[in-house]
Amino acid sequence: MIETVLRSEDLPVADRFAWWREMTSQTLTPTEITSDHSDDFRACFRLLDLGAAQVSVLSYPSLRSRRTPALVRRSDPELYHLALTLRGRQSISRCRRDASVGVGDLLLYDSSHPSDASAFPDDGSAVEGIVVNVPRTAIPLPAAKVDRLLGSPLPGDSGMGALLSQFLIRLAPESDAYRPQDAIRLGGLTVDLITAFLAHHTDTEDSAPPESRQQALLAGIHSFIECNLTDPQLSPAIVAASHHISVRYLHKLFQGQSFTVSAWIRQRRLEGCRRDLADLQLSDKPIGFLAARWGYVHASEFTRAFRRAYGVPPSTYRHEALHGGQLTDRRLRASRRSDDLMPG
C-alpha cells in the first residue's frame, strides 16, 4: 500500500496555505480554495492509494472550495467523490441545489460539474473527514441514476451507509498492519461497498454485479465479527445464522480470503489482546482480564494461542512491549509474515 502523510506544521507558516491548495488540487480535484486562516493554515492530509480507489483523511480549518465551470472545462478526471464527515459541518451548492451535512453524513459529488462548498468546525478547532476518489467508470450502475444522488446528503448511520462508514473509519488507522498485496484487495472492496451503497439508494441492486453484492455481504460479516469478538460464543455457526446464510456458504465466501472464518476470529482477538498488552494504561490489569475482554474464557487456551501466534507467552510479550520494544517489534513482523499460514 502506498501511504502519504503530510502536515502543514512541517512547512514554514507562509507556505502552508499554498501547499494545501496545490496538494488538494493534485490529489482530489482542482478547485479554488479560500480561507480566513490562510495566514497560518494548520492542516493534515493522509492519502491511501488502493489502486482502484484513493482514500484521503483530512483535517483542516474553515474554508471555501469552488469547482468553477472554467476548471471543469480545463480538466475533468471524471471522478466520483464520496465524503464522510467526521467532525464539523459542510455545505455544498451545485446545479442550483443546496445541501448541508453533519457528522456521520455521506455526500456524493463529482469532478464533472461545478460546485461551491464550505466547511466549518463546530468547536472552532478543525473539520475532519474522509474522501474517497473513484473513477466514474468503476461504478457499474446506470450513471443517470447515480447522478441523481449528487449533492444530496445520504445517511451514514444505518444499513449500507453504516457498513460503508465503519469500513472507511477503520481503514486508515490500521494501515500500518497492511501488506502491499492488501492494497489491491482493499481497493476492490472499497469500490464494491460504494457500488452496493449507491445501488441501494438508486434502487438498482439488480444492476450491481454479483461480485459486488458478495463483497458487500462479506464486509458486513467482517463488521459483525469485529463487533462481537468479546462474545465467547462467537463461531462460524453464529455468524452464518446472523446473516441468514448457511455455514457452508459462509466458508465459501471466505475461500478467497486466505484464511478461514475461525482463523480470522482468532487472529482479530489475538490482535486486540496484543494491543492491550502493549498499552501502558492497561498495565495494571491482569492478563486474564485482558484475555476475557476479547472472548477468551480459559487463560490456558489464550496463552497457547498467543504463544503460537507471536512466539512468546503473553507475560513475556507484555514485558518486552512496556520495557523494551525492539524484540517485540521483530516478533510482530515475523508473526505478520506467517498470518496466511494460520490454519482454521
Rank of each mutant, 00 (worst) to 15 (best):
L71F: 01
V127R: 02
I169M: 12
E301Q: 09
R333L: 13
S38H: 12
R266Y: 02
L149N: 05
Q181M: 14
D39P: 07
A219I: 10
P135M: 09
H323R: 09
D40K: 10
T316S: 12
E226V: 11
C273Y: 03
V103K: 08
S93P: 00
I245R: 04
A53C: 13
A126E: 09
T27I: 08
F17A: 08
S100R: 09
T202R: 11
Q90T: 05
P135D: 07
P155W: 00
L168T: 12
R304G: 05
F289E: 15
L171C: 13
D284F: 00
I287T: 13
G256L: 06
A208P: 07
M1S: 10
D206F: 09
D231F: 01
D276Y: 03
D231P: 00
L48C: 15
M1W: 06
D76G: 08
A83F: 07
V247A: 07
A237Y: 04
R42S: 15
C44Y: 10
P114S: 00
L47V: 10
T68L: 03
D105V: 05
T31N: 04
D15Y: 07
M342R: 10
L171N: 13
S125Y: 08
P30Y: 04
S100F: 03
R21H: 04
S283L: 09
R7K: 14
V134L: 14
A53V: 10
S283D: 02
A99W: 00
I221F: 08
R94S: 12
A299V: 14
R248N: 04
H243K: 12
L63M: 12
P69A: 04
G129S: 13
R46E: 15
T24N: 02
T85G: 01
P135R: 14
D110R: 09
I130V: 15
R179Y: 02
L171T: 14
T68R: 01
D98S: 08
E22H: 05
D10F: 06
T202G: 02
W19L: 07
T190K: 08
L282C: 08
D123R: 07
M23F: 08
L189N: 11
F259S: 00
R248L: 03
R304S: 15
A70R: 06
W264K: 01
R333H: 13
S75P: 01
W294Q: 02
R64H: 08
L270R: 01
T4D: 12
